[in-house]
Amino acid sequence: MSVGTGTQAAAAPMQKYKKRSQIAQIWGRFKKNKMAMGGLILFGIMLIVAITAPLFIDYEVDVIQQTISERFQSPSAAHWFGTDQFGRDIFSRVFWGARISMFVGVVVVVISLIIGSILGAASGFFGGWLDNVIMRFMDILLAIPGTMLAITIVAALGGGIQNLLLALSIEQIPKMTRIVRSSVLTLKTQDYIEAARACGTTNARIIYRHILPNAIGPILVQASLTVARTIISVASMSFIGLGINPPEPEWGAMLSEAKAQLMNYPYLVVAPGLAIILTVTSLTLIGDGLRDALDPKMKN
């Protein structure tokens, strides 16, 4: 084809051609993945429950009030999941527990995502001594087993939700930093980055226009898996008594309380256990679905 083949009008209006956003395409691919959609629906229900719990559950009456006359009731119409050793309704407690787990999970991801992205992007993009300083520090954090680190921080600073958030974020930041750094490292040598430099694009614009949109895939996948991992961490910390303080209905804490009665009243562990499994599984499925859907080279 040679120059000036077009005999049409000089510039057709842009509106003539439908603009297809990449988000719509990603959603189209995600929708086709049945497992991922199952995970998304399940997680959506959990999230709605967590947000709307105060509308139909009274914290003072249903969740923490002890009614000794009603202890250890098996699941029934009045108490769907039964009652625990203090006569509290397990259904209400599990649903209220979703609020705590989701809250901690989301806050930890947001904190580690922001700090991890900044550190990882700076480290990968600028390299040199900055990269060395940041990554050696992250290596130190990574060298300590995550749970150990969290236990140490909570033991030093005391329990409670704030210190738990801090401890779990510190555990997740190095992992997020590494993921972001490695994506940035592979992306920054791409020819399109050089093409951007060839017309004088600033570093800031290169990062937010060229690098971040392409790095978002692995970051989002990591984020969804981090929520899952954090929910398990919260449960484990509470299980060993270093997480959420009773009488707050945290799933791990509920399991911990139930373990003494496990031989006599096994139904006590079913509801909180299932809640943890379902939430974590749904998030993992979402993460896997996102990984596939976010690759722009995947065919629709």
């Binding site: 791409q190 020819d191 399109y192 050089e194 093409a195 060839a198 017309c199 949109p213 392409n214 722009p296």
Partner: peptide, 23 residues
């Protein structure tokens, strides 16, 4: 930056030289 308008580059690999997230 002024001069960059005068000199440009075309790359070898048309798969790597275009940002996959941009139309």
């Amino acid at each position: 930056n002024e001069l960059r308008k005068e000199m440009q580059i075309i790359f070898q690999d048309p798969y790597a030289s275009l940002n996959p997230r941009m139309s």
